[in-house]
Design a binder for these strands. Sequence first.
DNA 1: TGCCTCCTGCACTGACAGTACAGTATTGCC
DNA 2: GGCAATACTGTACTGTCAGTGCAGGAGGCA
Lengths: 203, 203
Amino acid sequence: MRRGEETRSRILEVAEAAVLAKGFGGTSIDELIAETGITKSGFFYHFRDKNELAKALLQRYIENDERIYDDIFGRARELMDDPLQAFLLGLKLLSELLSDLPNGHPGCLVAAFCYYERLFDHEIQMINRDAALAWRRRFSLMFEEIMAIYAPRLPLDADQLADMLSSVLEGGIVLSKALREPNSLANQILIFRSFVKLLFSSD
Amino acid sequence: MRRGEETRSRILEVAEAAVLAKGFGGTSIDELIAETGITKSGFFYHFRDKNELAKALLQRYIENDERIYDDIFGRARELMDDPLQAFLLGLKLLSELLSDLPNGHPGCLVAAFCYYERLFDHEIQMINRDAALAWRRRFSLMFEEIMAIYAPRLPLDADQLADMLSSVLEGGIVLSKALREPNSLANQILIFRSFVKLLFSSD
DNA sequence: TGCCTCCTGCACTGACAGTACAGTATTGCC
DNA sequence: GGCAATACTGTACTGTCAGTGCAGGAGGCA
């Protein structure tokens, strides 16, 4: 019972790193069991097939991702009375968190799975879609709170701004990987942050 | 001579669509030769191995990508005397081009290959890096031209703004794929465009 | 006529995703 | 202590896939 869960999560941990580095199609089960120290039968005891591994991997990643955002923006909201200041602090904290990763962001599974879509079943595609919609909802709520107080200098709605933040995050990950400049992502977040500041400035 | 080139480019065309839909690891050579109508030996006559296919695929994609940007921003520059107006027109043309694609952007090979990096040789990783650096150079030159005339409202340099545009493009592709909203990318470009307008407005 | 380009056909190898199923060690519960 | 569920191991197999090696053939062109 307890031991089973531990083995399962060890497989997922090894698999996540491998998938982010080599893609899902480039990650073999044989390789995962070798690194985890179990047998093939053991692997298939935990996951019916590779698709089920993908599903578990994605769900685990999304849960962790949400927890990180809850922590960062929750803490920022507690520290600041003003929603704009809280959001700006949250972005700052996020960029600092990413700067502290020595090898940069390891990659986003949602993005990795976007480029593998046709080989996954419909359920995984929906989990991926829900994750992107959750980002939109999360950030959109923050922008709505800000807009209740501050008038933006551009006629943008909260959803558009939320999607822009998601885009900058996802694109920043891709770009920092392609450029081999781990700090590029944290930098992009700060630039977006100063844009938000400008957008809601009364000057 | 002529016939060989034609077969080779037919393979590349089929392969590009497959790789963007299923990832490189999820695309089999058997599948490519079935769709192209040649034999396995024929495939290996044109490409030594799958890595060389990847290289040719990436180079072809980047050349095409550069040609599109040359066309769009070149035309915009001819139509407008002012570099800011030319850039804003270019972004508008780009978003319209992407809106006209019925299924949305098919995906960026540079991004797809980022999530497969460890299985490619060093050369491919460098081609990918050069492509991202070329985007930076291209957009940076435009921002420099703009900044020679207009003072930005934020203390950003041209490279940072260039990388932000690349991020929005790459992230917009990922997000529109994840959300299954093909128009999301074009929308993001227009939002970035209005940010640029605000940044260089004298108001 | 002969060489070069552009393939086809065939017969392999080794890695990998499963499938099937029998057996076993450990653990929790009654 | 016995029993059953959990969490595996071991073995043996299938089909797909990347890649190798090599012989040979069709068509163009010099």
